[in-house]
Computed example of a mutant assay.
Amino acid sequence: MSSANITLDNLQKSFGDVDVIPGLSVEITSGSFTVILGPSGCGKSTLLNMVAGLEEVSAGRILIGGREVQNTPPKDRGLAMVFQNYALYPHMTVAENIGYALKVAKVGKGERLKRVAKAAAFVELGDYLDRRPSELSGGQRQRVAIARAIVREPEVLLYDEPLSNLDAKLRHGMRMELHDLHKRIGATSVFVTHDQVEAMTLADNIIIMKEGRIEQFGTPQEIYHEPVSAFVAGFVGAPPMNLVTARVEGGKLVFNEGTIGMIKAPDGPVTLGIRPEKIVADQGAISVSLVYEEDLGSHRVIVSEAADGQRLQLTTQLAPEARFGIRFPSDAVHLFNPKTGERLEFSVEPITS
């Protein structure tokens, strides 16, 4: 199966006077698996629907394989889409559901049966071709929907939150299946979700969206370890990054009267970010009290509260006391502008004495 790059050039979408996507540009590499991630209402599904041709473009260009398609009907764009609801015909068999688009396109019966069998084999449904959707599990129905998309041999596969109707165990299994399927078929995949676990595990690249704009575009590791803003830092991670108010005071980075390290920066407030797994629970300079604890077997998720009322989550294998000390390794700290949320590039040096 071939693939194609996708170029979005100043793409815009408005509903009346409301700019849902005010102007978005990005290049999605041919053969890549790109996840569009963001909270509800950020415009991610609208963006996907414009690429698919299900939503009219207000302004800008969509190019697939170098060909402008914003005014091209969906069936002629060289793509296929997998929806959140499976949208299977209940009166048709699995084979008939998979091959329906080929039948409408008047593909010959022999070629149609061959391609249906091939697509079914890709998603391991070869033994279920004579069953109807009501006889399948949720995961099997989702695989039928995927097979129905890939049977057309598209250059681009679009997924609109396809796993949200599955339970946790099935979602985990389907993530592995989608990852394996992508490696085998090689089509350019664009996957919309609000689930950051899906994004982190499936993506080659992640587009983080906020209010119709791209907040950050990068690999999962870049998104996690080098967030460009407090929004990205607080959105990605389970538990998410702690974002608290700290201050620079006389060359020191201070949180809740505890000095984290030495810093060259103007005095004043900053937003300090630190991942829960980076906080060290020992007799550190910052004293906190235990608020809530979840014992997950392999580790504990602790919610703690500092003296000034700010709360921090940390993960640890230790069972903390009602009050305990914590410290922030200086190389694990992120700093953000408290007004704009933009990342600040500062070097924090540990205290040596």
Rank of each mutant, 00 (worst) to 15 (best):
M1F: 08
D9F: 01
L24T: 03
V26I: 04
T29R: 02
G31S: 07
P39L: 05
P39Q: 07
S40D: 02
C42E: 06
C42D: 06
V51R: 04
G53W: 07
G60N: 09
I64A: 09
V69P: 08
Q70I: 12
N85H: 13
A87I: 01
P90D: 00
M92Y: 11
V94K: 00
A95G: 01
E96V: 02
N97D: 09
G108H: 10
R112M: 11
F122P: 00
G126Q: 15
Y128A: 14
Y128E: 14
D130P: 04
R131I: 00
S134G: 14
S134C: 01
S137T: 14
S137R: 15
Q142M: 04
A145R: 07
E153H: 07
L163D: 12
H172A: 14
M174Y: 06
H179I: 03
K183C: 01
R184D: 02
I185E: 05
I185W: 02
I185T: 04
T188R: 03
S189D: 03
V190E: 05
V197W: 10
M200H: 13
L202F: 12
E211R: 11
R213I: 03
Q216G: 02
T219K: 02
E222S: 05
E226A: 13
P227Q: 09
S229T: 13
V236L: 03
L243Q: 06
V244F: 03
V244E: 03
V244W: 02
A246K: 01
V248Y: 06
V248C: 05
F255H: 12
M262F: 10
M262H: 15
D267V: 11
L272M: 13
R275V: 07
I279F: 09
A281M: 15
I286A: 03
S289P: 00
L290V: 03
Y292G: 01
E293Q: 09
E294L: 07
S298K: 05
R300E: 04
R300A: 02
V301G: 02
V303L: 13
E305L: 08
A307L: 08
A322T: 11
A322Y: 00
H334I: 07
P338W: 03
E345L: 12
S347V: 13
V348D: 10
E349V: 14
I351S: 00
T352F: 09
